[in-house]
């Protein structure tokens, strides 16, 4: 007969006691964990600070290094651009001496430029990939309609951040840059159409029908009214309305030399088309 398996009244006492003991013990372990984690975090922070101090130049200039850094940040669940935490400003800005932020803000201005310059062509909807290619090329002449405001901002930013081309940036960098524009409430957003990530630079919401048609265009290359009728079961009038709206917003281009009028996304200009 084991001692623990008490019989009689004492057993009730012990049963009453052990949950209490377990709980206490649990708290102790929990506490130890927290302590350990805090120590680890402190070490991690100091290491990271050391790391970024030694490597801030590399973060700025070396695309693969930067991508690795961004991946690391993502893996450990921190956002190098997060400025929303009002506790003590931007943790990263302090740690990295602002170099990462500067990089992305500078890049963001370039993204804005590209979006504005191509707005007439694509109605303010442009694929992340195309933005990346254009920023990478660093097209000297802006072309298109660039508002004076943007030009002024551009000049200021040029002065603040030494102006550099951005070779070898990745789509991640672009997305981060767009994200950094958010506090400005500038109407720049990343939306997904089909499987493609697009940057929308006009503060206009697409309705469901419009998104559906754009998605179809991105998959098929183009649509016609009868394709919409056949595949989506839409009536002629509905198809026409949606397409007219898209045309009015300059989001699609019309090709009237096919058997039936075709509607194309200007995105295909840059994907090689034909």
């Amino acid at each position: 007969m084991s001692k623990k398996k008490g019989v009689g009244l004492a057993a009730f006492d012990r049963r009453h006691l052990s949950p209490q003991q377990y709980a206490d013990h649990g708290r102790i372990i929990h506490r130890q964990h927290i302590d350990e984690l805090e120590t680890q975090l402190a070490i991690f922070q100091s290491l990271l600070a050391h790391f970024s101090n030694t490597h801030s130049a590399a973060i700025r200039s070396d695309p693969s290094f930067r991508a690795a850094f961004a991946r690391m940040c993502a893996a450990i669940g921190v956002d190098p651009l997060a400025s929303s935490s009002n506790r003590k400003g931007n943790f990263w800005a302090e740690m990295l001496g602002g170099s990462v932020n500067d990089f992305y803000f500078g890049l963001a201005v370039r993204v804005v430029e590209v979006c504005r310059a191509t707005r007439a062509e694509n109605g303010g909807l442009i694929s992340v990939r195309e933005v990346r290619e254009r920023v990478e090329k660093g097209a000297g002449s802006l072309g298109g309609e660039v508002s004076e405001y943007v030009t002024a901002v551009h000049v200021v930013v040029c002065l603040i951040f030494e102006w550099k081309p951005y070779p070898g940036i990745c789509s991640d960098d672009i997305l981060r840059a767009v994200k950094s524009l958010k506090p400005l409430g500038s109407g720049f957003a990343v939306i997904t159409i089909g499987k493609k990530q697009m940057i929308r630079s006009v503060p206009k919401e697409l309705n469901t029908d419009q998104s559906t048609v754009l998605e179809a265009i991105h998959i098929l290359g183009y649509v016609t009214v009868s394709m919409l009728q056949a595949n989506l079961g839409w009536e002629r009038a509905r198809s026409h309305t949606v397409i007219d709206d898209l045309l009015a917003d300059s989001l699609v281009w019309v090709d009237m030399q096919a058997e039936e009028t075709e509607y194309w996304s200007p995105m295909f200009i840059h994907d090689g088309g034909g």
């Binding site: 007439a120 183009y222 030399q257």
Partner: peptide, 15 residues
């Protein structure tokens, strides 16, 4: 040049 609508005059003024 390889984008078919490029050869059709676009009706939208901005485009």
């Amino acid at each position: 040049y390889h984008f078919p609508p490029f050869f059709t005059r676009q009706r939208n003024a901005i485009t």
